[in-house]
Every structure is written in structure tokens, then in C-alpha cells.
Design a binder for these strands. Structure first.
Lengths: 240, 240
DNA sequence: CTGTTAGCGCATTCAT
DNA sequence: ATGAATGCGCTAACAG
């Protein structure tokens, strides 16, 4: 079935395109009777305006792109991303936007991905990444595409990101363990490419130092954020 | 900075829009010298055609929408979805398409979601769902939007889906346990709303019956696909 | 091989 | 309050 256009609806409702457009965008200046008639026709034929056409004229898509770290195990295996994604989605929906998670970061050529981002299919990008030199982050900054990053790099001077205070969080956690009476406290670090790993380690070191506990290198290990690496390292800690 | 259009590139390269369009779409009928010149200008200005405009004229977006079951814990917490998503993404990339995961199924009004799907932002939809009455599946079928479903409903007569033989899979698994010498075999069912749950249970029953093992209701429990429910039920099995 | 012309479907002036 | 006209940026005949 050939999809109906706004023109068809206008004809069927006996009005002009402009009027249909007005009810589509719920503008007030339409006589109630006319509005109803148009809405009935729209409903009867299940008409929905074509996104591309309205995007072309308005120059906005009302959709937000979500980009996650490239590791697929992180992508779906780490519950933190589910929570972040959920939050992004909720706010988008609430504001009349929609969020779409870009799926191709594992298998798509980087340049092709950039081309997509430059094609203005998204009004803005939410990039989740604490990777210290994420090519995508660099690209977004350079091109001026509207974005916000969850996570950041050390030298970042602009305010394009939101992040937690990783060092302080680690400090609090370690202090808590010390308060509970523990003295032998291990640290399972994440990937060194992610800045949060170093930040947390920093907090860990500071809390130990403050408590006068000397750091035991045997109790520090570097994982890759996977549960498997956590398991292996934890076993090693207990063997030590 | 005002984004450049194909028109600007044409002027800068001293050719017409059509020629620029031709090199953009890598059509052969362009003199190498001209092609190079155009490509240089494109690269120099970092120009990328606006997706909406070309979508409007070609009536295709080259993007595939991926829709997952509504439960967010399933969404990111169940590794099977990571694998499926990965597969979809790989094939899309390989074919010059891109895949986008729709994020709003938890928090968006169903009608708004349908509106999005009808807006032709996706050339096709991949719906992952074995939910026996998934409203989205019904909608897709009714509207004639191109889609394929991973998972299916009992009475489905068309060929719009791909699925594994759940009953046979369960049969094989149970037979294997029996072959190993076990006689006391429990079944941890999934949500009853998903057809695969009943299918697998069917296979379980058949395999037991075939081996002359009577089914012990104490060893059958219904979870909700979460690891937590699996843990609780498994403990109950061992207590029984 | 290249330029000219004509829309794609919609929102948005500008008239009325 | 409504309609007619215009253009968003691009591809696709059609000429030449």
C-alpha cells in the first residue's frame, strides 16, 4: 500500500496541507470542528508524517544517540550501563525525545561511524566512556556535534561531561572497611585505559595512608571490568 | 558554523550538484580528475550529506531498528541478548546498514512508540520477543512494516520469524542428563508469557516420559529469567 | 561525462 | 482561521 502523505489527508479532509500540518503539530489556530475532522481522517487511515521530511525542514530529529564503550561484554554484561541507559531513556522520553543505542561500535569502521554522526540523524549524543583517549570523544569535540559525556579524561577542561568523584568514592569505601576493623584491604583495579581506574586507586592509596596502613602490592590487581577477571584476581588475593 | 550543503561543495569544486552527488554515491560516470577534485573539497571541509534529505528522496534510511523485550534486566542483564544484538549488528554493518537499539520501551507510551515506527525512520525492524501476545508484534504485522521476529507465538502461520526448536533442545538436554545416569532432573521454567517456556517444558516432559521417569512436580519451578529467580528456585530444588 | 530540471513530504511564511 | 506559495538538501531522470 502506497503510504499516504499529508497531501492525501488534506484532500480527504477537504482542507489544505497547512491545516493538516497545524493539527499535526497541535497549533491552536484551527477551528475545533475542522481539527476533529482532520484528526478523524488521520486516525481512519493510520497516517503518520514521514520523519525524514519533517526533519529536513525543521532541521531536528528529536532523537538522541547513545554510544557505549566498544567492549561488548561491558555493553550488555555490566549492569551499570543498563542503569545509565535507562536514565538517559527516561529523560529523553519525558522531554519528547527518543534515544537510540548505536549498535555498531564493535564491527563498524570508525570512519563510517563518524559519517553517521555527521549526518545529523541525532540532535545530540550521549557518550558513555571513561577511556582516556576515546577516538569518538575526540571526534565529537572537534566537529562541534552537541554531546555530553558520561565519564571523562584527565586533561578535560570544558564542561562537556558528567561524572562521579571516583577518588572520593574509593576513599569512602576503604575508610568504611577500616572503620569495620579491617587492615588487609585489596584493590581490584579496572582497565588502566579508563581514567576512573587510576582515580579510584588514588582514593584507595590515600585512605590507606591516612590510616597508617602500608600498601601491599600483592593486594592490588588489574582486571578488565569482567566478572571473570574479578573472580581470578579475588582468588589470587585469598591465596596471597 | 553553518553546515555546508551539496550546493556549497559543488560551487567550491566548480561543478554541479549532480556531479557532487555522483561522487558521493560513487557512481562510475565521473572523470577521475573531477572526482578527485570533488573529493578533496569534501575532505577539506569535512562535508557529509544530511541524512534526512537523502532519506526523503530515496525513501530509505539504511538503518534497522532493534527492539528487545520490555524488561530492562533482560535487556542488559541476559547475555543472550548481547549475542543476538551482536549478530544483528554484524550483518547490518556488513550489508552497509546500521542497527539502532530502541531504548524507550520501558518508559515510552506504546502509541508513541508505534508512531515512531510508522515514521519510516527504519527500513526494517528486528523484534526480539517470544512473548505470546506482544503488542509490538501485532502492530508490526498489522501495519505491514517490514520486520522479522526472533522468537514467535504459537499460532503464527506466516514466516516472519526465526527461532530455535525449543522443545527439541530441552529434549536433548534432558536425554543427555539421563544418559549420564541421572534420574532426578529438575526443570527451571521461564516466564509463562513467553512461548519458549512452554515449548521447553514440553520437551522436558517428553524426554522424561520416554525414559520412563515419572515427573515430580516438586522439581518444576517457574522463574522470570532473572539470575535471582534461578538462584531461589535452585535452592528450593536442593532442599526438596 | 556533465549540467538542468523536477520533485521527495513536510513546516512555514505571507496573504487573505 | 485558512490557503497558496516557498524551500529544506538531496537524488534521479533527462538532455546535451
Amino acid at each position: 500500500m502506497p503510504q499516504l502523505t499529508i497531501e492525501d489527508i488534506a484532500r480527504l479532509a477537504g482542507v489544505s496541507r497547512s491545516t493538516v500540518s497545524r493539527v499535526l503539530n497541535s497549533q491552536p489556530s484551527v477551528r475545533p470542528a475542522v481539527r476533529n475532522r482532520v484528526q478523524e481522517v488521520i486516525a481512519a487511515y493510520g497516517y503518520t508524517p514521514q520523519a525524514a521530511a519533517r526533519q529536513l525542514v525543521t532541521q531536528r530529529t528529536r532523537s538522541i544517540g547513545l554510544i557505549l564503550p566498544d567492549n561488548v561484554y561491558n555493553l550488555f554484561g555490566n549492569p551499570i550501563f543498563a542503569l545509565m541507559g535507562q536514565g538517559v531513556s527516561q529523560v529523553c522520553t519525558q522531554q519528547g525525545y527518543r534515544s537510540l543505542l548505536f549498535m555498531g561500535r564493535q564491527d563498524m569502521d570508525e570512519q563510517d561511524m563518524f559519517k553517521l554522526l555527521r549526518g545529523r540523524e541525532f540532535d545530540g549524543i550521549v557518550l558513555i566512556s571513561s577511556n582516556a583517549n576515546d577516538a569518538c570523544a575526540a571526534f565529537l569535540k572537534e566537529t562541534g556535534i552537541p554531546y555530553v559525556r558520561i565519564g571523562h579524561e584527565p586533561g578535560q577542561d570544558d564542561l562537556q561531561y558528567v561524572d562521579v568523584d571516583n577518588a572520593e568514592a574509593a576513599r569512602i569505601a576503604v575508610k568504611h572497611l577500616i572503620w569495620l576493623g579491617h587492615r588487609r584491604i585489596a584493590m581490584l583495579k579496572g582497565l588502566s585505559r579508563d581514567t576512573c581506574s587510576a582515580d579510584r586507586y588514588q582514593g584507595y592509596k590515600e585512605a590507606l595512608e591516612e590510616a597508617g596502613i602500608s600498601l601491599d602490592p600483592e593486594l592490588v590487581g588489574e582486571g578488565n571490568w569482567s566478572t571473570a577477571s574479578g573472580y581470578v584476581l579475588t582468588k589470587r588475593f585469598f591465596a596471597a
